[in-house]
């Protein structure tokens, strides 16, 4: 639509959108600002916005008090590990469904998606029990497996929609060129699907990073990721807003940045391709 819009209208749009955008973003902004305040300034009346004594001490207190780095490490392992494992399992499955479709492919995809909708709370106790029996409670390995399983349908689904866009003839050409199945997937399909695979990884890291049911219920001190780290701040002890803010900022910063990169893919991934 190459059409001149009056700059008056454009200005109004801009002002309105920025206003709303800032209001929505404000809680995050406020959290980040507060993390640099002293506890006293954090609850100052009236609230102070920018003109306070900027300090980094909250960050070091949080690190000392609750060992942020360990939780961060656990989050990285859980989110990264479950996504990687999921991708390894999902790529062959998505290849099969995209390039060798059968009459049942659609049903299988649907069924896979339906496992995603199993309410976690409905199966909490069995999983809890199994974890105790298998010695997986509060272990990184156990969480990697669970998060891989809950996100596997989304990973398969996303890869499937990306693979569908790759012309089958190219894979057939590889087959004619003497490529084995492994070479076909490794040297032809995967490199061609890199953008899709990357956004699948991104979205799933985000989902796994923020998952707050299994990570809270299946971990204790040892394997807790950042969701658990933050939950430990839910019972206030004295003045703690600045520290809470510092902890929150540290918990969300990595994923916020990743998320901004992957917003386009988000739509596709989360709607299972139903909206493009």
């Amino acid at each position: 639509m190459a059409r001149a819009v009056s700059s008056r209208r454009k200005s109004i749009n801009t002002a309105l959108a920025w206003g709303i955008g800032l209001i929505i973003f404000f809680p995050i902004l406020w959290t980040i600002l507060t993390s640099f305040k002293t506890e006293g300034q954090a609850i100052a009346d009236p609230p102070v916005f920018l003109f306070f004594d900027w300090t980094l001490e909250n960050y070091s207190i949080v690190q000392d008090r609750s060992d942020y780095m360990r939780y961060l490490w656990n989050s990285v392992i859980i989110a990264g590990g479950s996504t990687l494992l999921g991708i390894i399992i999902a790529v062959p499955a998505a290849w099969s469904m995209a390039f060798v479709p059968s009459k049942r492919t659609k049903d299988i995809l649907m069924w896979m998606l339906s496992t995603k909708m199993l309410p976690a709370v409905g199966v909490l106790y069995p999983i809890y029990l199994l974890f105790i029996k298998l010695g997986l409670l509060d272990s990184l390995f156990g969480l990697v497996i669970v998060l891989m399983l809950i996100n596997l349908p989304i990973i398969i689904w996303m890869l499937y929609t990306y693979f569908k866009e790759i012309p089958g003839e190219i894979l057939e050409a590889a087959r004619m060129d003497g490529a084995s199945l492994k070479s076909e997937i490794l040297y032809v399909l995967t490199p061609m699907a890199i953008p899709g695979i990357a956004s699948t990884i991104l979205l799933n890291v985000i989902l796994a990073w923020n998952e707050a049911f299994w990570t809270l219920n299946l971990t204790a001190a040892k394997a807790g990721p950042l969701t658990a780290f933050i939950a430990s701040y839910s019972s206030p002890e004295g003045l703690f807003y600045a520290k809470l803010s510092a902890a929150s900022t540290m918990a969300i910063a990595p994923i916020l940045i990743l998320g901004w990169f992957s917003q386009k893919q988000l739509v596709r991934g989360l709607t299972f391709g139903a909206v493009k």
Partner: peptide
């Protein structure tokens, strides 16, 4: 296909874009 010793040229060329 790989074992038949035939080569094929496709309508869409099917070149490896990467």
């Amino acid at each position: 296909p790989a074992k038949r010793g035939l080569a094929m040229v496709f309508q869409s060329y099917a070149l490896y874009p990467h």
